[in-house]
Deep mutational scan, measured.
Amino acid sequence: EADPRLIESLSQMLSMGFSDEGGWLTRLLQTKNYDIGAALDTIQY
């Protein structure tokens, strides 16, 4: 079963217009401990 923190973070990022095609966003959020800010910083640079 998916981590509730992942579901919450992923749904927030999907609502911002990101896609999780191929699961890349799920993996990114997992490596950033479900921190949306850290994930966005990684995507920006």
Rank of each mutant, 00 (worst) to 15 (best):
E1P: 13
E1S: 13
E1D: 13
E1Y: 14
E1T: 13
E1V: 13
E1I: 13
A2D: 14
A2Q: 13
D3M: 05
D3R: 06
D3W: 05
D3L: 06
D3N: 10
D3F: 06
D3T: 06
P4I: 11
P4E: 11
P4D: 10
P4H: 11
P4S: 11
R5Q: 09
R5N: 07
R5M: 08
R5P: 04
R5W: 06
R5H: 07
L6G: 03
L6R: 04
L6K: 04
L6F: 07
L6Q: 04
L6A: 07
L6M: 08
L6I: 06
I7L: 13
I7S: 10
I7P: 06
I7Y: 13
I7E: 11
E8Y: 14
E8I: 12
E8L: 12
E8H: 13
E8A: 14
E8V: 12
E8F: 13
E8K: 14
E8T: 11
E8S: 12
S9F: 10
S9A: 14
S9N: 04
S9M: 08
S9H: 04
S9W: 07
S9P: 08
L10A: 01
L10E: 00
S11G: 12
S11Y: 13
S11K: 13
S11P: 02
S11D: 09
S11I: 11
S11M: 11
S11F: 14
Q12M: 14
Q12Y: 14
M13E: 00
M13Y: 02
M13D: 00
M13T: 01
M13H: 00
M13Q: 00
M13V: 03
L14I: 11
L14E: 08
L14R: 10
L14T: 08
L14V: 09
S15Q: 12
S15F: 08
S15V: 10
S15M: 13
S15K: 14
S15A: 13
S15R: 14
M16Y: 09
M16L: 11
M16C: 06
M16G: 02
M16K: 06
G17Y: 03
G17W: 03
G17A: 02
G17M: 03
G17H: 02
G17V: 02
G17E: 01
G17I: 03
G17Q: 01
G17N: 03
F18G: 01
F18M: 05
F18E: 01
F18W: 09
F18S: 00
F18K: 01
F18N: 00
F18T: 00
F18R: 00
S19P: 04
S19W: 07
S19C: 10
S19G: 09
S19N: 14
D20K: 02
D20C: 04
D20F: 03
D20S: 02
D20T: 02
D20E: 03
D20P: 02
D20M: 03
D20R: 00
E21I: 11
E21C: 13
E21V: 12
E21L: 09
E21G: 07
E21D: 12
G22A: 07
G22C: 13
G22V: 03
G22Y: 08
G22D: 12
G22W: 06
G22P: 01
G23F: 08
G23P: 01
G23E: 05
G23C: 07
G23S: 05
G23T: 03
G23K: 07
W24S: 04
W24Q: 05
W24M: 05
W24N: 04
W24K: 04
W24A: 05
W24Y: 07
L25P: 00
L25F: 02
L25A: 02
L25W: 01
L25S: 00
L25D: 00
T26M: 06
T26E: 04
T26V: 06
T26R: 08
T26W: 04
T26P: 01
T26H: 04
R27I: 09
R27Y: 09
R27T: 09
R27W: 08
R27C: 09
R27H: 09
R27P: 01
R27A: 10
R27K: 11
L28P: 01
L28H: 02
L28F: 04
L28I: 07
L28G: 00
L28D: 00
L29P: 00
L29N: 00
L29D: 01
L29S: 01
L29R: 00
Q30H: 11
Q30E: 12
Q30G: 07
Q30Y: 10
Q30D: 05
T31A: 15
T31D: 13
T31P: 01
T31S: 15
T31R: 15
K32M: 13
K32R: 08
K32W: 09
K32D: 02
K32L: 14
K32F: 10
K32N: 09
K32C: 14
N33S: 08
N33V: 07
N33W: 06
N33L: 09
N33Y: 07
N33Q: 10
N33H: 09
Y34Q: 02
Y34P: 00
Y34M: 05
D35Q: 06
D35T: 03
D35P: 01
D35Y: 04
I36E: 00
I36M: 07
I36D: 01
I36G: 01
G37T: 14
G37L: 14
G37N: 15
G37R: 14
G37Y: 14
A38P: 03
A38L: 12
A38D: 07
A38M: 10
A38G: 06
A38Y: 06
A38C: 07
A38S: 09
A39F: 04
A39N: 01
A39P: 02
A39R: 00
A39E: 01
A39S: 06
A39I: 08
A39V: 15
L40E: 02
L40R: 04
L40T: 04
D41K: 15
D41V: 13
D41H: 14
D41E: 14
D41I: 14
D41L: 15
D41N: 12
D41S: 11
D41P: 02
T42S: 12
T42Q: 15
T42N: 08
T42W: 15
T42R: 07
T42M: 11
T42D: 14
T42I: 12
T42G: 07
I43H: 02
I43F: 05
I43K: 01
I43D: 02
I43N: 02
Q44K: 14
Q44F: 15
Q44S: 10
Q44R: 15
Q44M: 14
Q44I: 13
Q44G: 10
Y45F: 13
Y45W: 10
Y45V: 14
Y45T: 15
Y45N: 15
Y45K: 15
